[in-house]
Amino acid sequence: KELVHLVKLEGAEFVEGLRRVFKFETPEIHDMDKLAWFRDEEFARQTLAGMNPLSIQLVTELPIVSKLDELKYGPADSLITKELIEKQINRIMTAEEAVAQKKLFMLDYHDLLLPYVHRVRKLDNKTMYGSRTLFFLADDGTLRPIAIELTRPKSPHKQQWRKVFTPGSGYSGSVTGSWEWQLAKIHVLSHDTGYHQLVSHWLRTHCCVEPYVIAANRQLSQMHPIYRLLHPHFRFTMEINAQARGMLICADGIIEKTFSPGEFSMEISSAAYDKQWRFDMEALPEDLIRRGMAVRGEDGKLELAIEDYPYANDGLLVWDAIKQWASDYVAHY
């Protein structure tokens, strides 16, 4: 009832309603360092252990190039060049060596978001860019951000606009440059949070399971061993999704009111399904391999590209346990 009432609120009343309904505990890291959110180290750590650790990927080749139509969106090449990369890593190695040694990683929301930039910008109090964020894996095993590229595509009236921001933007004496770097990180976090909710959560966790729930109920007897195996995992999924369609992802629902893409949120989710979702790549090991975050060794075990990757480390333990249990169950029949 609280959520239904919340959807009907607007403006300041809606914000106050959110605070009343959703009371989250302060993260422990905030108790230790109240400015942790401000620091580059924490910004990078969140890509591995934060809300959305499912997007970071290994950079496997340079230059970085968009797959979008240049005539429609502008030049495809990224402004994050080899020269810029080498400058940001203090020339301890060449950009090619960094790629070969699996030192460069990226959050890439460029091609997914760029087609929606102008449409979102027409909404009240909204803005959007396409973004690429590059990270360097230090010798101590931690990531640090070295560049953020924000892009606005070309339009009938304007040429493409794009700019690269770096951690050293303000070190040359410009306070403005330092704050531009912080603002660039905020844009990336907005993209990353939206992707988590619209793709990692709604699309991959809720939406894409529906066909299998429906098929299992239509095609399998309730006494079938596979049905009995799947039933606890499918239970309540359709009901939860129906409720979400009624107040979360519907027109003028909570998602459209609170997420930066506004009314285009679910369209972006659908675009991600079209361009990114593949059934044979959704298993955790295959997803890690697809993103270059792991390789399969000769013994069949995964070797992570970043050792301190909590999502992968913990997730694979759970995955292996479930796989073993399910395999033993099926083998019994």
Results as ranks from 00 to 15, higher is better:
198 L>P: 13
328 D>R: 01
13 E>T: 07
72 K>M: 05
10 E>D: 09
324 Q>A: 14
22 F>E: 00
49 A>V: 08
325 W>I: 11
75 P>W: 00
286 E>I: 01
285 P>C: 08
33 D>K: 11
21 V>G: 00
242 A>N: 07
69 D>K: 01
159 Q>Y: 14
77 D>K: 07
210 E>V: 12
187 H>P: 13
236 F>P: 09
6 L>Q: 04
52 N>K: 13
310 P>C: 01
204 R>D: 04
97 E>Y: 02
102 K>Y: 06
266 M>K: 11
123 L>I: 13
212 Y>H: 05
86 E>D: 05
164 V>R: 10
4 V>T: 01
286 E>Y: 07
154 K>T: 12
36 A>D: 08
64 I>A: 09
43 F>M: 12
272 A>Y: 12
321 A>N: 02
251 A>Y: 04
217 N>G: 06
311 Y>D: 07
267 E>M: 08
138 A>P: 10
215 A>N: 12
132 R>K: 11
8 K>W: 01
272 A>G: 02
20 R>F: 00
295 V>W: 08
164 V>D: 05
89 I>P: 08
104 L>A: 07
233 H>A: 03
85 I>N: 10
107 L>Q: 03
226 I>S: 08
7 V>H: 05
23 K>F: 01
109 Y>I: 07
22 F>D: 04
317 L>T: 11
153 P>V: 11
164 V>F: 10
53 P>L: 01
297 G>F: 00
82 K>P: 02
144 R>L: 14
65 V>P: 05
27 P>V: 01
103 K>H: 04
250 C>P: 00
166 T>S: 07
159 Q>T: 12
258 T>M: 09
179 W>I: 15
328 D>G: 00
111 D>C: 13
176 T>W: 09
195 Y>K: 08
274 D>C: 05
105 F>P: 12
120 V>F: 10
8 K>F: 05
147 A>I: 05
232 P>C: 06
236 F>A: 14
52 N>H: 13
27 P>H: 03
264 F>A: 03
96 E>V: 04
97 E>K: 01
300 G>N: 03
117 V>A: 04
324 Q>C: 09
85 I>W: 04
40 D>G: 09
95 A>H: 09
94 T>N: 05
219 Q>E: 06
159 Q>D: 14
117 V>R: 10
